[in-house]
Computed example of a mutant assay.
Amino acid sequence: MKNFYKKILFVTMACTILFMSYIHSYTPKHEIYDLNETLMHQIESHVPDYVSLDEVSQDLINATVAMEDKRFYRHIGFDPIAIVRAVLVDIRERRYVQGGSTITQQLAKNLFLNHKKSLNRKFQELIIASKLEQLFTKEEILEMYLNVIYYGSGAYGIGEACEIYFDKTPDELSLEESAMLVGIPPSPNRYNPIRNLAKAKQRQEVVLSVMAKKGYLN
């Protein structure tokens, strides 16, 4: 039994070494963006209403982390715990139900990959996410994420979303408005407050409840 666990440990370490070495050589191809240290400036030049993180309300930042990636500030680009949990759910349901994607993985997918669910795309997503974590701080990754994610009604990025839904800038958002916006990206059509206010408010309550559980609200 000890030899078995030693073999498992050896294979795991070998796979980790290969994975980390592959990160340095992997370069995703994209028509607009290049994965290097200038990526933030590239995004800024392509997003008309680009906003820096210090121009975003703290409530919206807290809501985003609470809903999308509660271990965002602790993981290395991907969350093994979330991945294992998602795999178990997918196996039980016999279909893709949960993705286990972190904010960094979602950024990688939105910038460099398609949204087709496959093992190959998931592996590429992990590689790119790991590389993003090497190149940028958590705050920079969160800033880029907020500026490229789709919020429905043709709004790409938090700047456009705030203007379209509330006629405000991101730093003027209330807690309730922040919660409603953060609830939209998982299903932009279903939780769009313009098209379906009742569903959007239900989702808003979910976001506020999760924020309370995670300690962001008293």
Rank of each mutant, 00 (worst) to 15 (best):
M1W: 13
M1N: 05
M1I: 08
F4A: 07
F4D: 10
F4G: 01
Y5Q: 06
I8V: 12
I8K: 06
L9Y: 08
L9I: 11
V11S: 14
T12W: 09
C15V: 12
T16F: 13
I17C: 10
L18R: 02
M20I: 13
M20H: 10
M20E: 15
Y22H: 07
H24K: 13
Y26L: 08
T27N: 15
H30S: 15
H30C: 08
Y33S: 00
D34I: 04
N36L: 02
E37K: 09
I43V: 09
I43C: 05
E44G: 02
S45G: 06
H46G: 05
H46F: 07
P48F: 14
Y50C: 02
S52W: 11
S52A: 10
L53F: 08
D54W: 13
E55P: 09
V56A: 01
V56Q: 13
S57Y: 07
D59S: 15
L60Q: 09
I61E: 12
I61C: 03
N62Q: 12
A66V: 06
E68N: 06
E68W: 08
D69E: 11
F72A: 03
Y73V: 04
R74Q: 10
H75V: 03
H75S: 04
H75Q: 13
P80G: 06
P80L: 10
I81P: 01
I83C: 12
A86C: 11
A86S: 15
V87I: 15
V87N: 08
L88W: 11
R92V: 09
E93N: 10
V97T: 15
Q98K: 15
Q98C: 01
Q98W: 12
Q98D: 09
G99M: 10
G100W: 08
S101Y: 06
T102F: 02
Q106A: 00
L107P: 05
L107D: 04
N110L: 03
N110P: 02
N110Q: 07
L111W: 01
L111Q: 01
F112T: 03
N114F: 11
H115M: 08
K116M: 03
K116E: 13
S118I: 00
L119F: 14
L126V: 06
I127P: 00
I127F: 11
L132E: 01
E133D: 13
Q134A: 03
F136R: 06
T137C: 05
K138E: 03
E140S: 10
E140W: 01
E143G: 05
E143W: 04
M144D: 00
M144Q: 04
Y145I: 01
L146R: 11
N147L: 01
N147M: 06
V148K: 00
I149R: 04
G152D: 12
G152M: 10
G152K: 07
S153W: 05
G154N: 04
Y156N: 07
I158G: 00
G159M: 08
E160S: 14
A161K: 02
I164Y: 10
Y165N: 03
Y165F: 14
T169M: 03
P170W: 04
E172Y: 09
S174G: 15
S174K: 07
S178M: 05
M180A: 07
M180C: 12
P186S: 11
P188A: 04
N192W: 05
P193V: 07
P193C: 14
I194H: 09
R195Y: 15
N196L: 04
L197W: 14
K201E: 15
V206S: 13
V207E: 00
K213G: 05
K214C: 02
K214W: 05
G215F: 08
L217F: 05
N218Q: 15
